[in-house]
Design a binder for these strands. Structure first.
Lengths: 231, 231, 231, 231
DNA sequence: AATGAATGAGCCTTCATTCAT
DNA sequence: GATGAATGAAGGCTCATTCAT
């Protein structure tokens, strides 16, 4: 299904490049191997993309853009509760990272993003601006709602990272988690199960934190403990 | 302090290699650049280490071993409460990852580990076995205590990943978090603050999860089935 | 004629490699020098042949195969006398070794074979099997006929080596023979003259040996014991 | 017995160098390997000999000088018959080339000379002048006597080469002869057997040639066919 | 438009040699 | 006198890129 001989050469190269770059990294990947896998001429990369680096940029951009478009982190219903929106966000984020149609869709591609996140390259700035910042904003809204108005911006940021960090670790540390026997990525339901856990874990944490903040405020400011019911 | 001309050449190369390998990755790094930075001859890498790959192994091993030895994830007092042990664990893990004496101690070195975790290389197996697995076992004990005897092994594993994932994200996604303005790594207290947050967040989550598990068991085993409506 | 700029690069490299490998030996020869002489890029050797060693193999193979094909050691007439067949064999062998179209055709190439014969390299096995063994078999037949049925296999083998050794020495010890003033390789008729000598020398030897063997047998088996006094 | 630790370092290096140079050739041999085998410091070669090339010269010189001194090509009795002197010459030459105390005395050393003879290097000139030319002169005298006064200098030279070529081939083409199964170098009597054969073969040849020359002269000049009995 | 031949820059490594001790 | 540490030069090879077709 992939690498169909009748697919346009440009597409075949893009596809092959995603796999090779993901497996080997930018430098270790060779245009020869990419072209061999794409069944294209050695000069095709330069002809269609202008060079190895430009091809790499295109691959990463396509991969992220495609994946982000495929899995939305927002519910269709804007009136949904914060809990529900969190569940959707986590599920979508994990799907982006782990599901077959996502960043790890085919062999090695997930590592491509892992590498890119770990390594500040010029392309990262665009990625952050175009894709990651909007996503972070969505999560920021959810977390803010869950923590309530008493939570300071610092706490909101930290909780954002806590949520997103749990999700990313399953993608970034995949080789380690596999070796430790902590996660079995082969099971098809794994994404849903992990999403459920992260949602529950994070909700429990943030509800608890909110309760604690507000009780402290209540204690500090007097008896306004009826605030608890707002959210 | 870095690259002192009077330091033994072997040390200078090790130091330089950590930085270069971290910045560029194994393949993209060149022994020429390493030696230039270490102010050593090109042949010195082969003379002292036997080759580029052997140097890389030594760098990673030294880095991890040194860092793990410097920051213990266990309390001196074995009778300490699970909460306290969690706090120590999180603080030590973050220190390993972020503090000046740790894996990101100098420019680029943190990325070296990020890359190694993301990209399974032969050396990773040894690292997992020697350093990561023991650490994971410690965390497993803490989490297990916090969740109580009613928690199944699945939940314990998932919570382990939730805790460790929060910590790692600050190291792995450092470039992104910086660009998003979510974390200011320059502030010296940042490690302690993040550790506090992760500990609180995780404690709140696990205490909440434990309460829920045990109440469900109670419901199943006895007569508190009116709790069901709370959540 | 040599190194013509319009000759295909592959051919120019092959030509240059024959000379350089012959002059310097495999290890001391450098692809840089070969390519410089062939007026080709340094990478051309790897591009066309896959590496220095593969180029060497091709050079030796081409040289031997070409030479062996050009000079046949067998007479067109299979009914020819043993004497005549020996003359043809010796002339062909010397031509292979010394004539302009043969193994020493251009500067240094003869030494290439000398070196290869003296120094067992993996390629030698193939050469022996494909080219030398068949040639040895032809000579074995001739010698066997000349010595008669009474000659044991041991004697046949030794005489083979005596014939071939005389031929080879003119090629192998060329520098020494030149320095000693024993042979003037510059004279064009030299090959024919040497061939004549070796043929005569060897014929005389083998005819004499045959007479001696058969007279001894006669002595042993019957009553021609008066032959003993002849010699 | 060889490489005794208490032998002077200089001797141990000479010994080791002979083996390594013989096995690998000048360029492929490394001073490191030589020094390792001699259990000496890397710098010892430069210290004692002034460099790799000077060491090589010394090794070849020592080897040839020692061998030539050990096996004399002349009989003790200057009045000996030409046949006898030929037998001694051949036996000595073969011993120089093949016997344990000679040029192939230990592993690989024989090939050292084979290589040197095939490859005109500056050192060869000295070798020819000091060692080979005198030997050639001895053989020239023997051959001249055997062929008789009627033989021209050309024939004498050719017969010299025929004799010496037979001897050398056993040393030069050793790998090939072994592969062809023509010679079994492992048998201890092999040198004597080969020497006997070459002597007989050459005597038979030269006696025959003499007879032929003289008969032709006789035929040409008249009826002096009684010359046949002289020799 | 698309390609195969060819290339030049650069990489890792080896090795004879040097030099301070 | 003798050595171990260190080095500069050079070698084989890889690879992204170019160019004529």
């Amino acid at each position: 299904m992939e690498n169909r001989k009748d697919a346009p050469i440009r597409q075949r190269i893009l596809q092959a490049a995603g796999e090779i770059f993901g497996c080997r990294g930018f430098k270790a990947a060779t245009v020869r191997e990419i072209c061999r896998r794409a069944d294209a001429n050695v000069a095709a990369v330069n002809y269609y993309f202008g060079g190895k680096e430009a091809l790499y940029r295109e691959v990463v951009r396509d991969l992220i853009a495609g994946t982000f478009a495929k899995f939305s982190v927002e519910t269709a219903n804007p009136e949904a509760s914060a809990q529900e929106r969190l569940a959707v966000f986590v599920r979508a984020t994990l799907s982006r990272l782990l599901s077959p149609g996502g960043l790890s869709g085919y062999r090695g591609r997930g590592q491509l993003v892992a590498r890119e996140l770990a390594e500040p390259s010029p392309i990262l700035d665009t990625m952050v601006e175009d894709f990651i910042a909007p996503t972070a904003a969505v999560l920021g809204g959810i977390v803010s709602d869950l923590l309530g108005p008493a939570a300071g911006p610092e706490l909101v940021m930290r909780c954002q990272v806590s949520v997103i960090g749990q999700c990313f670790h399953y993608a970034m540390a995949r080789p380690v988690l596999t070796r430790l026997g902590l996660v079995d990525y082969a099971r098809p339901e794994i994404v849903a199960e992990i999403a459920d856990h992260i949602t529950r874990f994070s909700l429990e944490a943030m509800v608890g934190l909110r309760r604690r903040i507000e009780s402290e405020i209540g204690r500090g400011a007097g008896r306004k403990r009826n605030r608890r019911n707002q959210q």
